[in-house]
Design a protein around this nucleic acid. Structure first.
Lengths: 354, 354
DNA sequence: GTTAGCACTCGATTATGACGAGTGCTAATA
DNA sequence: TATTAGCACTCGTCATAATCGAGTGCTAAC
């Protein structure tokens, strides 16, 4: 059986209609709404073929058809024509990026919010992470009589901090000296040399040896602590607006999945090998349709995601989650637009800086 | 009509039963389950009185009764007997606090999570805020050729940071000097003197005047920026487990409210004047029942909240949100326990430090 | 190959009636 | 006089049946 032009036209009609209405579509509806120049009976025959080929599904005998994951996959790969963004939309996205580019936490939060607003789906944004994390600067600053704070700046402008308890907090001058020692050591030695304490053994016998050791430990902890990765979501409630989740149990299972930070991270990182690059100059946006993602709770959802660059060698991810019936033609350009914005601004900043 | 002992006994039975079952309670049920030594007919008469007095409500003719906000209020003020926490519970709460006390962000997040876990309601935790914010230390640290980072530590161990763009980033030594200038100025002058630039006008003409100005501006912004306040929630999904929110529209409206950060903040801060202190040594836990809070979307919810101390003059808030039918007898001791833990540990730390 | 026509399917909607938990009222009782 | 047994009545819930209609597959005619 061949997937001829006409079958594809019908499939396209079914998918477009289903994306818009969330109702199974019958042959008569197609014949009336989309004038393909053929009767409902012919369409009926073609639909029967499409079902046999696996592109559409009949929820029960004598109901209309609904696209299958495979149908959406064909649609996304071959039929999708992207919606042009309006000027308002592009401006809005550009401003969101421009206003927050210097503050990664805000950037993540506002990006998630902006995308949720424009798409009405759920968005997830993860913190940029280096393949190989680099510590840019460490500063030990005074806090009170029995504690100091280490501030750790990584390559990608991410700032983390830890409180360290001491018996008696040294003077600011001393703390500066300690900061210098730490920074110098970080420049000269690898993490493994530091974690074996070899790199700074000479300082351990000094009066502040214990503190210096604590600082290095806290630096290493930050450098390796994957769990520290922040993830922001927005528009989780939008799930409830889709009829496919009007069953409260289904909604609950999706919510539960989206509440788990680990789950969010794996949404953004999972199945890297399974996904294919989208053609047509859309960068490396990945699309996972329904069961293509391996999370049982999200089997009725599609995930559209991509990475953004933030600092040298440092990448974060942005994902948009909705029902498989999601509006791919709109979501992809929106995601593409904001990521290009981020990448462009970051590139401009780093060019400027050299 | 007098609210005699017997009426109160009946009211108590109704409320306890309703908290447990979420079903309207009839006179026969009470007569059978709680042997008060009177017949269902008598109970019926008393219930009729209780309804007239406004403590219970009949959803429709010939259905059982349900407590009103006023009924819960009486219950909470006069009838409530707190459940003792189990050893596991107290240990769990103590450990949660102990493990995270030095890192405010974790402390907030884990506290929210722990409370949601123990109570099965939704929890909200806000960042400690000074009535009068004090900057403990400012440190300008290098980032790259065209930017530096200001790290601002407030009185309450909250660390904020901002990126500042410069034409050409000064050497670390210079940045240290600038940090010293800023810290010194902050010690000697008030915020108003700083915001008028009067306090540091002498430095403006130096080669780094622009940068120094930017740093002060960023400090002031952080000091005043209410919006910077972080708020963490946990267990939002628990809402879906309550039959009162099985209507998806109701659930959605609560979700929408809990998604807004401003709304969360006003949940924790609203109606300070309206609430009353709870007696019986429970610190200053506040309870808002149903319409006692002024948020339309939360009119079917109760809010139990209190403040915790984190650093000198610095208070954050913790709130637990559930249906008005929530288990006050359990939630209040749990909340009380964790807040006492936080306060005790913080007190111990500050005593130790003097 | 296409289409009109028709019998058939099956979920959704509506109507109906039985059930039962609960009420209020009245009259008998302690 | 307060309490209670008894009874008719109310009304939401649940199960059953009836109807409707969108949609199908198949056949025969074009």
């Amino acid at each position: 059986m061949i997937l001829n032009e006409r079958k594809i036209k019908i499939l396209e009609a079914i998918i477009n209609d289903y994306i818009a209405t969330a109702e199974p579509i019958g042959s008569r509806t197609i014949a009336k709404k989309y004038n393909l120049g053929i009767s409902s009976a012919t369409i009926r025959n073609e639909m029967s073929d499409l079902e046999e080929l696996g592109f559409i599904i009949q929820p029960h005998t004598s109901s209309g058809r609904v696209p299958s994951d495979m149908g959406y996959r064909l649609y996304v790969d071959r039929l999708l024509r992207f919606r042009e963004l309006t000027k308002q939309e592009t401006d809005f996205l550009r401003n969101t990026v421009a206003e927050n580019i210097n503050h990664i936490e805000y950037l993540m939060r506002k990006t998630a919010k902006a995308l949720a607003l424009l798409t009405n789906y759920t968005t997830v944004v993860s913190e940029p992470k280096c393949q190989e994390i680099k510590i840019k600067h460490v500063q030990v600053i005074p806090f009170d009589e029995t504690s100091v704070i280490t501030v750790i700046v990584t390559d990608n402008k991410v700032v983390k901090n830890n409180v360290i308890k001491v018996n008696h907090a040294p003077e600011p001058d001393i703390l500066n000296q300690i900061s210098n020692i730490v920074n110098q050591t970080l420049k000269e030695y690898s993490f493994s040399e530091i974690s074996s304490k070899e790199a700074y053994s000479q300082f351990l016998s000094s009066p502040y040896g214990k503190l210096i050791d604590d600082v290095f430990i806290s630096v290493l902890k930050t450098a390796y602590d994957e769990r520290n990765m922040r993830v922001y979501t927005s528009g989780v409630n939008n799930i409830l607006d889709f009829p496919e989740f009007s069953d409260i149990e289904k909604a609950k299972s999706v919510f539960k999945a989206l509440e788990e930070k680990d789950m969010l991270i794996s949404i953004l990182e999972c199945d890297k090998e399974k996904t294919e690059e989208k053609k047509s100059g859309l960068g490396n946006i990945k699309i996972l349709i329904g069961n293509e993602n391996s999370m049982e709770q999200l089997k009725d959802c599609s995930i559209i995601k991509t990475d953004y660059k933030y600092g040298k060698n440092s990448y974060g991810s942005i994902g948009i989650i909705g029902p498989t019936r999601m509006n791919y033609a709109q979501v992809i350009p929106v995601l593409n637009s904001i990521v290009n914005n981020i990448n462009d601004v970051i590139k401009a900043l780093s060019d400027e800086g050299t």
